[in-house]
Each structure stands twice: as C-alpha cells, then as structure tokens.
Design a protein around this nucleic acid. Structure first.
Length: 363
DNA sequence: TTGGAATCAGCCCCAGCAAA
DNA sequence: TTTGCTGGGGCTGATTCCAA
C-alpha cells in the first residue's frame, strides 16, 4: 500500500476559512516561532483522516501517514512574502520545525510524552514537503477530545508566537454552553506557552517571576488578539482592573490566571447569514435556511426537553444535519454522543407529532 | 540561493513602589 | 521589614528586507 501524496500548487486550494487543531495539540507543550506556527497551520488546513491509508498485514491493520507538498505560490500567499524572499523566510523555520517535539499530556499519569511532530519535513527548490509523524495521528486528527476551530486569516495575521498560542486556546471555547476555559496555575501556563523542557524545568529563568511572565507573554498576547479579532471581546477584571485576565492570588502572590473573554456568537452566525439548502424532494427551486434558524434548532436539540411546544420539526432537524459542516465551522458539533442521543429523541417526537397532525386532519 | 543589514520581539536586570 | 509587582532600559537573537 502506497503513501498518499497530496500536492498543492495553486492558491484556491488553500482558500478556506478555518483550520482545526485537536484539543490535545492546543493544550500541548510545544515551542514554535511565528513562521513555524504558520507552516504547521498550513498543513493542518489540508490534513484529513481520509489521507491516512489503511494497510492490512495478515490479521492486523496499520495506518500509513500521508505526504503533503506545498508549492512556492501557496507558500508565498500563506506566509505573505514575495517569491524572491521565500527561501529566507522558510528554510530556517522549516529546518527547526523538522526537529520539534510536542509534549502531549497524559492526564492519568500527569506527565508529558514528547514525540517528534514530523516523520520528515524538507524545504527544497521552492517546495515544502511535510510528512506528519504517524505516532501522532490521533492528536493530529483530534479523534478523541474535540478540537479548536481556528480562523486562519486572523491566526496568520497575529505576529507574536504567544498570541497565536493563546488564540488557539480561546478558539477552543467559542460556545459557553459547551464549557469554558478553566483557570490555570503557572506550571500549566509555562507548559502551554512552550517554556518547559522535557524534564519539566523552566527554560527562561526570568519567568519564575510571575509578574514578568504576565508582562511579556500574557498582556502583549491579549493586546494583539484584541486588536485583530473583532469577534472576541476581553473583559476587565473588576477587582484588579486587569484587562483580559483575572489574577488568582494567595496573599500577594499571583498563583494562576483565569482568562476573561467572550465570543460574539451572534456575529459569528451572522457572518454567514444565509446558507443555501439542497432542493427539497417536493420543490425544484432552491430554498434558503437562515443561520439563525440553524442555530436555534441546534440549541433546542442540544438542550432537548420532551414535549415542548417549540421543539423542532423533522424538516428543521434534517436542515441541521444537511448543514452539519457549516455548524461545525461555527463551533457547533453535531457528532458528539449526547447531541446525537438528543437528536434521536427529538426526531422521534417530531415524526410522532407530525403523523398525529395528519391523522387528526383526516389525511 | 546566499549573505549582510535593519528591525523588533523576547529576555533579563534593576530600581521604585505597595501590600502584607 | 519583607516580599512581590510594575515599569524602564539594554542586550540578544529571530525575522524581515534587500542586493548580488
């Protein structure tokens, strides 16, 4: 069985709004420069579970990791540089990225396991070839713990490494109904901002002073995200007056941080105001379903209570399944177990209710 | 593709201030 | 008085820009 090779030479092929980063990768230990972050994001825009071919060897099966190749036009557009400069901009970061290891947290053992990000990564003759490490397939695809849906234009527009990293974390919690970002102690924060080595030691000693860490990492990151992402609002901590975060204290010592932010869910929805619906069985003309309708139905299913007068119809329920990709792009997952259970109950109720209506009308 | 210069973010140290 | 936070400023290295 041959490895899949995905080649991208033209610009339209990367013209997509979001890329996904798994929960484990968002909250991993990984130090990358801004250009390395962008190269990684480029691969993540293309990465798909379908690209991992399955090979059967006797009784057992194994997955074969794909190869991604990006041509010079794609790299120039993605990194925002002229073709004459692409070697300078790409060569060194690509070389470093090839050797980077990511620390994935084992929550049971409370330890980080460090694994190389790539099996191979080469920049040669204007082409960047990236082969993700097979050992990280679950983390790349985000099979188990959900993912962060990251707007790629805003992400690339962020110049600070730490702003990119914080932005990925904040994108993981767009919908407050699906959980919120917990408060972190400094050991967690050091890890998530790539400041710990494989032995768990702080590599920059100045950050032992928490005030220095907040001043040079947290505040500039909040400021840059605030300037470049209009859909995200940071809030002021009334007690301390800090913008975007609440310091958690023990006496006078700051022991941790809780980020204070909210996403404008309405604006995210209205940024795609109307979604084209596939023509229904009875009508040949296209209908349209509004984003607000889709989101309303989604919320009703997510918080499903039997026999409520405003519970959705079968058509509304079909609509959200038809537009599951759009919902997913806007942080509304329709594939999690609880949602699917609610969906089954809601559609059973809708069918029963609608057949009852027809019967009572004598049809 | 290479090499050098310019720029700027990140890092570190220090002094002053304030809270416990 | 001690301890921790804040802000200023200099140094370093990564990134960007430009010329060959």
């Amino acid at each position: 069985m041959a490895r899949q090779v995905l080649r991208y030479q033209q610009l339209p092929s990367i013209d997509i709004e979001f890329f996904k980063k798994s929960h484990e990768m968002v909250f991993s230990q990984l130090a990358l420069s801004p250009v390395e972050h962008d190269l990684m994001a480029l691969m993540l825009t293309r990465l798909s579970e379908d690209h991992w071919e399955e090979e059967v060897i006797g009784e057992s099966k194994r997955k074969i990791n794909p190869t991604y190749e990006f041509g010079i036009d794609v790299l120039c557009d993605w990194l925002g540089v002229k073709s004459a400069d692409i070697y300078n901009v790409t060569q060194e970061p690509a070389s470093r990225l090839a050797g980077r290891k990511i620390g994935i947290k084992n929550s049971k053992a409370k330890k980080y396991r460090f694994t190389p990000l790539f099996e191979d990564l080469i920049y040669e003759n204007g082409t960047l070839t990236m082969i993700p490490n097979n050992a990280l397939m679950e983390q790349y695809i985000g099979l188990t713990k959900g993912h962060s849906q990251i707007p790629q234009k805003v992400f690339r527009n962020l110049k600070r490494e730490n702003a990119k990293r914080l932005f990925s974390m904040l994108c993981r919690f767009k919908d407050p109904a699906k959980g919120s970002l917990k408060a972190f102690d400094f050991q967690d924060l050091y890890g998530m901002f790539g400041l710990l080595n494989e032995r768990g030691e702080l590599v920059k000693k100045s950050y032992q002073r928490t005030s220095e860490f907040i001043r040079t990492i947290i505040k500039p990151a909040i400021k840059e995200i605030d300037e470049k992402e209009p859909l995200l609002t940071f809030h002021i901590d009334e007690k301390s007056g800090n913008y975007g975060y609440q310091p958690l204290k023990s006496g006078r010592k700051i022991t941790g941080i809780k980020f204070l932010f909210s996403w404008d869910i309405e604006k995210i929805a209205s940024s795609k105001p109307v979604v084209k619906k596939v023509a229904s069985q009875t009508e040949q003309t296209d209908e349209e379903v509004s984003a607000v309708d889709l989101l309303t139905t989604y919320v009703l299913v997510n918080n499903y209570t039997p026999d409520q007068p405003n519970n959705p119809s079968t058509q509304q329920l079909k609509d959200i399944m038809e537009h599951s990709n759009w919902l997913s792009e806007n942080g509304k997952e329709v594939v999690d177990v609880r949602f699917m259970l609610n969906y089954k109950m809601a559609i059973a109720e809708a069918r029963a209710r609608e057949s009852g209506m027809f019967n009572s009308d004598g049809e």
